Simulated assay, not measured.
Amino acid sequence: MARTEQSFVVIGLGAFGAAVASELARFGNRVMGIDLDERRVAQMVSVLPTALILDATDEIALREAGVDRYDVALVAIGQNIEASILATMNLRLLGLETVWVKAASRVHHRILVKIGADRVILPEQEMGRHIAQMLNNPVVQDYVSLGNGFNVVSIELPKALDGATPKSLGLVGREEPRLMAAMRGTQQLDIANPDLRFAPNDKLILLGRRVVLQAFSDGL
Results as ranks from 00 to 15, higher is better:
Gly33Asn: 13
Leu96Ala: 07
Gly173Ser: 09
Met180Leu: 15
Asp202Met: 11
Gly28Thr: 12
Ala73Phe: 05
Phe198Ile: 10
Val72His: 12
Ile85Cys: 02
Val45Gly: 01
Asn201Ala: 11
Asp118Cys: 14
Asp71Trp: 08
Leu93Ser: 15
Asn80Val: 06
Glu82Gly: 02
Gly173Cys: 03
Val10Lys: 13
Arg110Ser: 10
Arg39Tyr: 10
His109Asp: 12
Leu213Gly: 02
Thr50Asp: 10
Asp68Phe: 06
Asp142Gln: 01
Gly128Asp: 06
Arg110Thr: 08
His108Asn: 10
Gln6Tyr: 01
Pro158His: 13
Ala132His: 00
Val101Asn: 08
Ile85Gln: 06
Asp218Ala: 15
Ile53Lys: 12
Ala51Cys: 08
Pro166Cys: 09
Lys167Ser: 10
Arg40Gly: 02
Thr88Leu: 04
Ala2Glu: 07
Glu38Lys: 08
Arg197Gly: 00
Ser154Asp: 13
Gly173Val: 04
Arg63Glu: 15
Ala182Met: 09
Phe216Ile: 07
Gln141Pro: 00
Thr4His: 07
Leu169Phe: 11
Val72Glu: 02
Leu74Tyr: 07
Gly17Met: 02
Glu156Lys: 15
Val113Glu: 15
Val172Cys: 06
Val72Cys: 11
Leu54His: 09
Ala15Ser: 10
Gly116Glu: 12
Leu189Glu: 05
Leu204Asp: 05
Ser46Tyr: 01
Val107Asn: 14
Ile131Asn: 00
Leu146Ser: 04
Val120Arg: 14
Ala42Ile: 06
Val101Met: 03
Ile77Thr: 13
Arg106Cys: 00
His130Phe: 02
Gln79Ile: 04
Glu126Val: 00
Glu97Leu: 11
Ala192Glu: 10
Asn29Cys: 05
Ala42Thr: 04
Asp162Phe: 05
Gln141Asp: 07
Arg110Glu: 14
Ala56Glu: 07
Lys159Leu: 15
Val107Gly: 03
Pro123Lys: 03
Val45Cys: 08
Pro138Glu: 09
Gln187Ala: 06
His108Tyr: 09
Pro138Ser: 12
Ala25Lys: 14
